[in-house]
């Protein structure tokens, strides 16, 4: 059976796995964005704290994903929870760092003007600083997404969702019928998802960045 035939005959299974893959990545990036932007907002003007936050999230990135997922099994069990916790951890660095860099890049005159005409500190953050830093923050979110699409495949090791199951399954049975096709289909799926996510971010970037920043 050729790869195309394999994909055609197992389309339901593969598309289901791809959908789960997208879901687990989107969920993880979503949670990481809330936490990461929050940490960035709270620490960007305190160099010591933002240093600690960036150091911790980059430290997390150095833990091999295979080992980390394995270590999570006794604590969080198999499946979605372990996967999502690990992926959120791996997403943190680009989001936190870009939030800090983006907010620091906002002209101090913007903040002064906002405060000077009577906006509250929170109002200035929400309506001035975050929108101006948004293109930089969004780039961080995009980099995180690209990173964890690959890592999410490894989640199959802890019985997590996604295309990793195809890859692990294929590699475990290498030499037997359709083993190579399964591994290839899984890998190809991950690559296609990565490209689709990138396209999605291009659209999001266009829709969420003020025209005033692009002129």
């Amino acid at each position: 059976m050729s790869l195309t035939e394999y994909i055609q005959t197992r389309w339901d299974l593969l598309s289901q796995a791809a959908m789960n893959h997208v879901l687990v990545v989107a969920l993880s990036v979503g949670i990481a964005t809330v936490i990461g932007v929050g940490v960035g907002v709270l620490t960007y003007n305190r160099p010591r704290l933002s240093g600690i936050a960036i150091g911790a999230s980059s430290g997390f990135l150095t833990i091999p994903s295979f080992a980390l997922l394995g270590l999570f099994i006794p604590i969080l069990g198999l499946g979605w929870t372990s996967t999502v916790v690990a992926l959120v951890g791996y997403s943190m660095l680009p989001i936190v760092r870009n939030t800090v860099v983006g907010l620091r890049g906002v002209d101090a005159a913007m903040v002064e003007a906002g405060r000077g005409i009577g906006m509250s500190a929170a109002g200035v953050m929400l309506r001035i600083q975050l929108p101006l830093a948004w293109p930089v923050i969004l780039t961080g979110i995009r980099v995180s997404t690209q990173m964890i699409i690959g890592i999410a495949a490894i989640a199959a090791y802890v019985a997590g969702p996604g295309l990793g199951n195809q890859i692990f399954d294929g590699l475990a049975r290498l030499g037997s019928v359709n083993a190579l096709n399964a591994a290839l289909a899984g890998t190809l799926g991950v690559v296609v998802l990565a490209l689709l996510f990138d396209l999605f971010y291009l659209v999001i970037r266009h829709l969420t960045t003020s025209r005033g920043l692009r002129v």
Binding site: A109, M110, G116, L132, S210, G212
Partner: peptide, 16 residues
């Protein structure tokens, strides 16, 4: 501050 006009050298218009 909402009842005091404020103008600065950098102007500080919000570009977005």
């Amino acid at each position: 501050r909402r009842h005091i006009g404020y103008v600065i050298q950098q102007i500080g218009l919000f570009p977005h």
